[in-house]
Amino acid sequence: MNAIRLLLVDDDPLVRSGLTLMLGGAEDVVIVGEAADGEQALAVAGTVRPDVVLMDIRMPNMDGLTATERLRARTDAPEVVVLTTFHADEQVLRALRAGAAGFVLKDATPAEILDAVRSVVAGDPVLSPAVTRQLMTHAAASERDVRTAGARRRLACLADRERDVAVGIGHGRSNAEIAATLYLSVPTVKAHVSRIMTKLDLNNRVQIALLVHDAGLLDG
């Protein structure tokens, strides 16, 4: 298997150096570049073509939110994992809605960061349901009401089985777990996931999970 190509983006050179030291020894990960802000990240990513970008949010010139949106809009877009100092932060939630596949805390252990990087490449869930709920409750109540109505309208286009799969994703289940719960094959679940993302114009499982949470399908 080819090594995972990783791009580090943070405006603090000490953070970048620390990440390089922590992660550089992994046999299955190679750090292919660094960037100090979102503008540099877009330029460097276009040259080194990373599989995953570890992205800080608060940076000068162009922040991580804008950079994430632009990276995820590209053809063959890299996965983005957000670097943050807070578990529940509105900007983290915005980054996830923009297409980031998950987040890790800046004080996480090297093993935890590597696990997140490997998981997003494998297409596995990164956020636990508890963390997703924590992020969702961080939003203002009025905003949640608007999002609930909008999410339910968007999900109405799904077939019943697709909706069931989407709810499974919202619960943080893997494809194998969803397949076992719904008595489907794993390839069938994968096909449903692809159709869900196409119908809803989403690009990863985290966005599906957030939409399901927005719609209130996991309440109770």
Rank of each mutant, 00 (worst) to 15 (best):
A179C: 03
T84C: 04
H87P: 00
H213D: 10
T137D: 11
I196Y: 05
E69L: 05
E39V: 09
E90H: 01
R70H: 15
G168R: 15
A209E: 05
T137M: 02
K190M: 06
A26P: 12
R133M: 07
D76T: 08
F86K: 15
V92A: 00
A151P: 11
D160W: 03
P187E: 02
K106C: 12
T68W: 04
T132R: 15
L83V: 13
R133F: 04
A151H: 03
A98W: 06
D37A: 05
I178P: 09
L200D: 08
H87Y: 02
G33M: 11
E79H: 14
A156T: 01
V193H: 10
M197E: 11
V126Q: 07
A191Y: 08
A176W: 08
H87W: 08
N203K: 15
L23E: 01
V189T: 05
G64I: 04
R49V: 15
L14Q: 13
A176E: 10
A35M: 02
T68F: 02
L211Y: 12
S17G: 14
D56C: 05
L210G: 12
V44I: 13
G150P: 11
R147K: 02
P13N: 12
R16A: 03
R144A: 14
A3C: 05
D51I: 06
I4D: 01
K190T: 10
D145L: 14
V92W: 02
T84F: 07
A100I: 00
T148E: 14
L93C: 04
E162I: 14
H213M: 06
L14C: 07
I196V: 15
Q91P: 03
G38D: 02
F86E: 08
V165L: 05
G172H: 04
R94M: 03
P187Y: 09
V44K: 03
R154Y: 12
A130S: 09
A140F: 15
N61P: 06
R163K: 13
I113F: 07
V167P: 00
P110N: 04
V29L: 00
A179F: 01
L54P: 00
R173A: 13
H192K: 15
I31M: 08
V121Y: 07
R97S: 05
A73W: 08
G99C: 08
L14R: 13
A3D: 03
P60Y: 09
E162D: 15
R161A: 13
S17T: 10
R205E: 02
G220D: 14
A149Q: 10
L71G: 09
V15G: 01
V15F: 06
E112W: 15
I31P: 03
V120D: 04
